[in-house]
């Protein structure tokens, strides 16, 4: 039994070389590497926010000043430095994206894998996922966020709770094609427990899809969080990119001062585009036919 298991485990060891080949192909893609660089810079900015800029609070003397040496991104209607707001906003936006996508991925993958592996559960899971996907998500998030009151935890839970069906949809379709493959039957014949088969054989097979889901769910979470904040449902006590836009709209600053909305929008676009490009580059690198070697 031990030898069989060890033999089967060597299948998963092949994944290491596959991963290395993927990484080698990924490194050759300039767009993918630039995107990784941008993402790293944004994360570093988020972590080091206190070192880069002072927390924007209170009132300043220079109200609605355009970008200058003193205020790189200009100032808002209360004279606060927009560069500092964007830097501190990166922190909250990335934290929300990371936490909510982690939660959504955890729920989504477990549901997808269980559904694909146990056909009886799949009929129910498939229907529920289809039903969830046909609901308009943002209005639902608005309803819950308004009822539960704005806070970081509410935002993370709301976004995660309405994002997992999309993860399940993607992972489940991949898992369904994997469980039909002969090696899954072979794994069952060795007498391994369902848990072992799922962990050792099913999960590694769907891992690439999960990687792509993580990136896409996180970037969609950034947009959802910004959408809620733009409607005034964000955490009112901390800065986020959506809140900068909300403030600009509420004060009417957006009608005269383009810098109040341009810079947070650019930050958001940069984050989401680089995440999307990373997932595209990763997909290309993983596909041997798209690789040039």
């Amino acid at each position: 039994m031990t030898t069989t298991v060890a033999g089967l485990d060597s299948v998963t060891n092949d994944q290491v070389t596959a991963a290395r080949a993927t990484w080698a192909a990924f490194r050759r893609n300039p767009l993918g590497m630039v995107s990784v660089g941008i993402l790293v810079v944004l994360v570093v900015v988020a972590i080091c926010a206190p070192l880069i800029a002072e927390y924007p609070s209170g009132y300043g003397d220079a109200v609605l000043q355009g970008p200058s040496g003193a205020h790189w991104f200009g100032t808002d209607s209360l004279g606060r430095d927009i560069f500092a707001e964007v830097v501190w906003g990166a922190r909250l936006s990335i934290v929300i994206a990371a936490l909510s996508s982690a939660l959504a991925i955890a729920i989504g993958v477990v549901v997808a894998v269980l559904g694909a592996y146990f056909p009886k559960a799949d009929a129910v899971i498939g229907t529920i996922v289809d039903l969830c996907l046909s609901l308009p998500v943002l209005p639902l998030m608005i309803l819950v966020a308004a009822l539960a009151g704005p806070s970081l935890i509410t935002l993370v839970l709301v976004i995660a709770f309405f994002s997992w069906p999309e993860v399940t949809r993607v992972v489940r379709s991949q898992a369904l094609s994997v469980v039909r493959l002969p090696y899954m039957d072979a794994a069952k014949l060795t007498g391994g427990s369902s848990f072992w088969i799922i962990r050792k054989h099913l999960l590694p097979a769907v891992a690439p899809v999960i990687v792509v889901s993580v990136v896409l769910t996180a970037s969609r979470a950034v947009l959802s969080a910004a959408g809620l904040a733009f409607l005034g449902l964000g955490d009112p006590n901390s800065w986020s990119w959506g809140r900068i836009l909300y403030d600009a709209q509420q004060s009417g600053a957006m009608q005269s001062a383009w810098w109040t909305t341009l810079f947070p929008s650019l930050a958001m676009l940069l984050l989401v585009v680089s995440a999307t490009l990373i997932s595209i580059a990763y997909n290309d690198a993983r596909n041997p036919r798209a690789r040039e070697d």
């Binding site: 970037s219 947009l223 910004a226 959408g227 733009f230 836009l245 600009a248 709209q249 957006m254 009608q255 383009w258 909305t261 341009l262 929008s265 958001m268 676009l269 989401v272 585009v273 999307t276 490009l277 595209i280």
Partner: peptide, 22 residues
């Protein structure tokens, strides 16, 4: 296409409003 998919709806609206409208 990639950039379009990554746009934040209010940002697009605000910029169209600012340039074409105001």
């Amino acid at each position: 296409g990639v950039i379009g998919q990554s746009l934040f709806v209010p940002s697009v609206g605000i910029f169209l409003l600012f340039f074409l409208g105001l």
